[in-house]
Design a protein around this nucleic acid. Structure first.
Lengths: 359, 359
DNA sequence: CTGAAAGCGCTAACAC
DNA sequence: GTGTTAGCGCTTTCAG
């Protein structure tokens, strides 16, 4: 047994706590080992400059010896801050949300924050559960996707003083802060582009507008833009589908089987666009010769399809970074959450061209 | 003002706390409102069956009125459990890790756990920081990617009693539990397949083996398999690159510019394979006529490339689910972490064929 | 079935 | 500079 100070106020049953600890250490063990008070340990860890260098070194030494891991949970109880932000997205798999998520996590990490992740799978019910749990973990702020949320969730965030931010959807009317591009405007630009190429009969593939208000904005833009140009909005050319390539393929297939197929199709996300494109090639159709396709998101893979996909570039990384920055600034410096509108950009690649036959 | 019990032991400056709370409620307010003790509120929330139905209803009513959100942080202090698991992956963007992550989050959520996410960007330094922070948040368990970890991290997890699990890499030799397929075996099967097709000059594109032990296993299998078949391992046909399509393209480009290009290339992940494939087509080479390509992962998009990519299917979803289940079982029922080996499957699609000229 | 009281590991005054 | 003390919001004996 090592020659330790023999004042067993609390007889520790540590058989050989030489310098490799066997059990979780608390700030008390560290203090004892360093021969200081717990307050000093706390200071040495959080405000090193308020402690004499030599003392600090002794404390740090004791921390190392015991493999002490600071208990952020206990600290949070007092500081009323968890240094944690919650993030809820509908899906990560195979999607553009992964990009914003990675940026949020990166930015948070750099600022000393940890991200609690929730995946709602496009289910409002699941989202509410997820959010409740994040709130119970006392996240300092919550970053949500889109503007469809349980009313009681909003109330809880309000009364519990948890700031929240909407991403992927601009909340112009409401007083909710959002960091996003304008889905309507972006989709409009895509449709406008097809029309300007001379297309008169257009199809749409998009997500399910009942659970996805981004898809709703995009669909609305599609319909409005056609009307604006005096073109027909034919329900037989509008498909709301799940977020899968296969769904894009089958939607395209259905359109092509229509008596009067479209000469151009707007797919409101690249995942579905890739499926749609593949379906056309499967049938031996030339893209863009026989039919034009435009996607939405600019996933990295869209530069690698054959032909390369024309799409709308969405500032996913920027959005994630800005959202995290704004959230953290609000948490740390009480700066009210500000809304930011980001821009999108049409990336004309190879799947779009004028229709073969003008009417 | 509602006719409440008038015994202001602690004069609450609530001007009109009718049923919409203005500030965060604690269990005390709820107790007061329901006319019970804090202990009863706690019981009503955690062990409803130990409280009379009528009392419980009163408590729940008070919870609703105050928008009370349970403080999981305070609860964790006592229970020594956070109902939280940490997950560290190298990247989410545009990758197969998104799939396992989604499954882990899904499974955790269903079991009442929250996931704390860290993205290490293939940096051991960043990973150590991330892990430290997760430990400080007192995660009940940690799911890591691969087997390269800071020694002091391992010690901290050990002495702090935080169970950890390795994914994406089988830890046969070491005593670390892992839930994964065997990278070596899986890569071997891919290379073996090319050899069995008649290829004698093979190239490799893989991740950076210095920061990615999965890539190392796969490279090792490539080299061993060639040797086993008495084939040359030509360093000029081996490329370690970052995890980007562009990198796969440039690696392929370099190989093709070689005096004696390969007739088949094993890309140790689909991302690089897509780039490589694209590069071949860019140069007007026929795949698999002029050159065969096999990928690894079976990303959804590999069924949508032209031609469709032959690859090795990896059980990402299963791995995530099993890892989360095993971790949670260990946390809740003290079951020791068990290792599981999952299987992969070669998916022969359209980018592989016998070489045009046998030697 | 319910209440009173102690205390989880840490920090924030306030002393010394 | 450093120590002492009093809790943060909750759970958990132990009484009643």
């Amino acid at each position: 047994m090592p020659p330790t100070r023999s004042k067993p106020e609390k007889p520790p049953d540590q058989s050989k706590v030489a310098d490799a600890a066997r059990v979780k250490a608390t700030i008390r063990e560290v203090a004892h080992r360093a021969g200081v008070s717990t307050a000093t340990v706390s200071r040495a860890l959080n405000r090193p400059e308020k402690v004499r260098a030599e003392t600090r070194e002794r404390v740090l030494q004791a921390v190392r010896e015991t493999h002490f891991v600071f208990d952020g949970i206990a600290a949070s109880m007092i500081s009323r801050r968890s240094r944690t932000i919650g993030l809820i997205i509908p899906t990560i798999t195979n999607s553009i949300y992964a990009a914003s998520t990675q940026s949020i996590q990166h930015t948070a990490q750099a600022a000393g924050y940890t991200v609690l992740l929730g995946v709602s799978e496009f289910s409002p019910r699941l989202e509410a559960d997820l959010a409740q749990r994040l709130l119970e973990r006392r996240v300092d702020g919550l970053i949500l996707t889109g503007g469809n949320h349980d009313q009681s969730l909003i109330e809880k965030m309000r009364t519990n003083g948890v700031p929240f931010l909407i991403t992927w959807k601009l909340m112009r009317g409401k007083d909710w802060p959002s960091v996003s591009f304008d889905n309507y405007k972006a989709a409009w630009s895509a449709v406008e582009f097809l029309v300007s190429l001379g297309h008169r009969r257009l199809g749409l593939v998009c997500g399910r507008t009942d659970v996805n208000d981004r898809a709703l904005d995009r669909r609305q833009a599609f319909e409005d833009c056609l009307e604006r140009h005096g073109l027909a909005v034919d329900p037989v050319l509008i498909y709301e589908r799940d977020f899968e390539m296969e769904e894009g393929a089958s939607a395209m297939s259905a359109m092509l089987d229509t008596p009067e197929p479209p000469t151009a199709v707007f797919c409101a996300n690249d995942i579905q666009a890739i499926g749609a494109l593949s379906q056309c090639r499967e049938r031996g159709l030339s893209v863009p010769g026989d039919i034009s396709i435009i996607g939405f998101d600019d996933l990295p893979v869209t530069s690698y399809t054959r032909p390369k996909l024309t799409t709308v570039r969405v500032p996913a990384h920027d959005m994630g970074r800005r959202a995290a920055e704004i959230m953290i600034a609000s948490i740390e410096r009480q700066i009210p959450l500000q809304s930011v509108e980001l821009q999108t950009e049409l990336i004309a690649r190879e799947t779009t061209a004028p229709p073969r036959f003008r009417r």
